[in-house]
Simulated scan of single mutants.
Amino acid sequence: MLAAALRQETLRPGAEVLDVGTGSGALAVAAARHGAGRVTAVDAALAAVLTTRLNAWFAGHRGQVRAYRGDLLRPVAGHRFDLIMANPPYVPCAAPVPPRGGRARAWDAGPDGRAVLDRLCAQAPTLLAPDGVLLLVHSGLCDPVRTVELLAGAGLKAAVTDRRSIPFGPVLRRRAPWLEAQGLTAPGQDKEELVVVRAQRPA
């Protein structure tokens, strides 16, 4: 969904793009192919950073894509970007604090699924250049309306621009009884809605 949203954006020559929580670097490489001047990719996992560098090299974009390890937006504090993309952890979980390591770090995000989303909504607007765009994907289980409201409150023009219903994956299937007990899903619900939120800073 983020790759499709990226393809809808027109990047100015030399555009600076940030991919937050890059994982394999697939979106970072897609941004380079789409015409970004430079792509900065950030992830908390060293394996993800190394994988992104390797995938950029294989794709012929080693000079365009730079990958850094660090907590969310900390490695790029003070920089400005024309486009920021983020596919953060957003799955609600019983633990009040997201894990600091292990595979679950890629999806667990506190009881309401917003432990990382709220930080992104607070910090990302300060990194957008004038007319810059934030593209953010997350589950409908963790309140897209709140995401839009927070970004609008930071001075951005924000809206949900894409929605897609998909079957629960393995994590949500295992967690289905807990999600229902928390009132996050309806009885017997086995699908979730994914949304893309687009937010733009005024020129």
Rank of each mutant, 00 (worst) to 15 (best):
G110E: 09
V20R: 01
R119P: 03
P99T: 06
G102E: 07
T22N: 06
H79G: 00
A44R: 14
A5C: 12
C121K: 05
D143L: 12
P144Q: 08
H138W: 08
E193C: 06
A154I: 04
P130E: 11
F81E: 00
A5N: 10
Q8E: 14
P88E: 04
V148G: 01
V137Y: 05
A95T: 13
G188E: 03
A3I: 14
T40H: 00
P187H: 12
D108Y: 15
A31T: 01
L135K: 02
A158D: 01
V145E: 14
A106P: 07
L150I: 06
K191E: 15
V195W: 03
D82Q: 04
G140R: 11
G14A: 11
T147P: 01
A31G: 03
E193N: 08
P125K: 09
G101H: 14
T22M: 04
V133T: 12
V65M: 00
G188N: 08
G183K: 12
G183R: 14
A45E: 15
A203C: 07
L27M: 11
A94E: 09
C142I: 13
M85G: 01
H34D: 06
H61E: 02
A186R: 15
R12V: 15
A47V: 15
I166L: 15
A3D: 12
K157E: 13
L128P: 02
L141H: 06
Q189H: 09
L83H: 02
V20Y: 05
T147K: 01
G101W: 14
L54M: 14
L179T: 04
L73T: 00
D71K: 09
W178R: 09
V97H: 11
G155T: 06
A30T: 05
A15W: 08
D112Q: 15
G37A: 08
H138Y: 07
P130S: 12
V65E: 00
Q182V: 08
C93T: 12
A94G: 06
G60Q: 04
T22P: 04
V49I: 10
G153T: 03
G113Y: 08
A158Y: 01
E16C: 05
G113W: 09
D118K: 09
G35H: 10
V137L: 07
D162P: 04
A176L: 07
H79P: 00
Q182E: 13
G35V: 10
P96I: 10
